[in-house]
Computed example of a mutant assay.
Amino acid sequence: MPNHPLIVRLGRTRLFTRLAPHLLPACDLTVHRLTRGRLLPSRLFLTTVILHTTGHRTGAPRTTPLCAHHSPDGSWLVIASNFGRAHHPAWSTNLLHTPTARLTSGRQSHDVTTRLLSPEEKTAHHHRILAALPVYDTYTARTTRDIRVFHLVPRP
C-alpha cells in the first residue's frame, strides 16, 4: 500500500503529535467495533492492524491499532513510535513481558509470537519500517528514547 502524502506531511507536525495519540486510536477502535471489523479509518492511508495484547500489570486484554508492514513470509513489523513522544507506548511494554499476542488484519486474526528487533536488525529492516511508518525518521529524531520495533510471526 503506498503511503499517503498527506499523512507524511501531517505526521511531521507538532500539532499532529499532540492530538493524534488521543484521537486516532479511539476513532479507529470505535469505527472498527461499530462496523464489526469491516472498516478501520487509518487503513485508508497506511497499512493498519489491530494488536491484542495482555496488560503486564493487570493481565487485562488490551487492543491497539498500529501501523504495520506485512512481509511476503507472513510476518509483520510494528513500530512503537508513540508519535515520537518521550515514553514507550504501553502495548510495547506488554509485549516485552508477554511476547505472545493476537493480530487482526482486515477480517483475519492470527496468534503471533513477538520479538524485539536489535539495533542492527532495525538498520537492516529500515526500508520496511519506513514502509509501515513513513515518518519514523522524524519521530526518531524527535525523541531521546530508542524506538522499539517488533517482529511478529504467526503461530501455527
Rank of each mutant, 00 (worst) to 15 (best):
P2M: 12
N3E: 10
N3C: 09
P5L: 12
P5E: 11
I7H: 14
R12Q: 15
R12N: 11
R14Q: 14
F16V: 12
L19V: 11
A20C: 11
H22S: 13
L23H: 08
L23N: 06
L23E: 08
L24C: 11
L24E: 02
P25V: 07
H32I: 07
H32Y: 15
R33W: 15
L39T: 13
L40V: 06
S42G: 15
R43G: 01
L46I: 08
T47H: 14
T48M: 06
I50P: 05
L51C: 03
H52A: 13
H56E: 13
R57H: 14
G59W: 07
A60E: 12
A60N: 10
P61Y: 03
R62W: 05
T63R: 15
T63D: 00
T64M: 11
L66W: 00
L66F: 00
L66Y: 00
C67V: 13
A68V: 02
H69V: 10
D73C: 05
D73R: 03
G74D: 06
G74C: 06
G74Q: 07
L77A: 02
V78Y: 03
V78P: 07
I79A: 07
I79D: 02
S81H: 06
G84D: 00
G84C: 01
G84S: 03
G84I: 01
G84H: 05
R85Q: 15
R85E: 11
H88A: 14
H88M: 08
H88Q: 13
A90Q: 14
W91E: 03
W91N: 00
S92D: 03
N94C: 01
L96P: 02
H97Q: 05
T98F: 03
T100G: 04
A101V: 04
A101K: 02
R102C: 14
G106T: 10
G106F: 05
R107E: 10
Q108H: 15
S109L: 11
H110M: 12
D111K: 10
V112E: 08
T113L: 09
T114E: 01
T114P: 01
L116V: 07
L116D: 05
P119T: 05
E121K: 04
K122F: 04
T123K: 09
A124I: 02
A124N: 11
A124D: 14
H125W: 13
H125I: 01
H125C: 08
H125M: 12
H126L: 11
H127C: 00
R128C: 09
I129N: 04
L130G: 01
P134L: 00
Y136G: 01
D137L: 08
T138E: 01
T138G: 02
Y139H: 08
Y139A: 04
T140Q: 15
R142C: 08
T143F: 01
R145S: 02
R145W: 08
D146Q: 15
D146N: 12
I147P: 02
V149G: 02
H151I: 06
H151F: 11
L152S: 04
L152A: 08
P156G: 10
